[in-house]
């Protein structure tokens, strides 16, 4: 009896400790990125600063802090770098409505850096755990439009963004000043 119990418990514990296959049933779209792996999992949305340092803020910092997900299956802290939009948008705006809630997410784990032996996450779909309907992570540009009504116009947001324009006006496209940009342009026409 003891023998059978030990075999069963060993099997269960080692199975839990072994890395799970998070790609199972994932509907994430490939972006052909470094080390890309589809990953669908459940976890809790957290403010990284709060989770790591105990420096917590109301509503996970109201969009001003980097957010992540503590994965339920293995308690790993997953740092979210990106939403599903293709124009330089982070993941915070799409995670914020789920601050400190348990969610299901679907997306891509990325990264195969030689030095940094960890992966990061692009969240493509999200829902509160237990709900049926998935939500696409496309809140960023809507929030940007609401925050920047003066930047109304045609073209991509990043060409109209006041903060980007201010910095390029100050130090140029290479960050080394406008004279440097002009000289490079003249030499590379």
């Amino acid at each position: 009896m003891l023998f059978r119990t030990l075999i069963a418990s060993t099997f269960l514990i080692t199975a839990s400790a072994t890395a799970a296959d998070f790609s199972k049933d994932s509907k994430a779209k490939s972006w052909r990125l470094y080390g890309e792996e589809k990953a669908k999992f459940s976890g809790k949305v957290v403010d990284l600063l709060c989770e790591l340092a105990g420096d917590c803020a109301d509503n996970c910092g109201n969009g001003h802090r980097n957010l992540g997900i503590v994965r339920a299956a293995d308690n790993k802290l997953i740092t979210v770098l990106k939403n599903r939009q293709s124009s330089f948008n982070g993941g915070t705006e799409d995670l914020l409505p789920y601050c400190n809630k348990n969610v299901d997410v679907d997306g891509l784990m990325i990264g195969d850096d030689d030095v940094v032996k960890a992966k990061f996450y692009q969240v493509q779909l999200i829902r509160v755990t237990g709900e049926e309907k998935w939500n696409k992570t496309t809140r960023w540009t809507k929030r940007w439009k609401a925050k920047n009504p003066e930047a109304k116009g045609k073209g991509a947001w990043f060409r109209r963004d006041p903060r980007v324009k201010k910095q390029i006006a100050a130090t140029g496209y290479f960050g080394l000043g406008h004279d440097f940009d002009k000289k490079y342009a003249a030499e590379n026409e």
């Binding site: 969009g63 980097n66 740092t79 770098l81 990106k82 124009s87 330089f88 948008n89 982070g90 993941g91 915070t92 705006e93 960023w140 990043f158 963004d161 903060r163 980007v164 910095q167 390029i168 496209y173 290479f174 960050g175």
Partner: peptide
């Protein structure tokens, strides 16, 4: 080379 793109990403909230 990537400075302008880094500005776009920082403004976009990428860590």
């Amino acid at each position: 080379s990537h400075h302008t793109c880094a500005l776009w990403c920082a403004a976009g909230g990428i860590p």
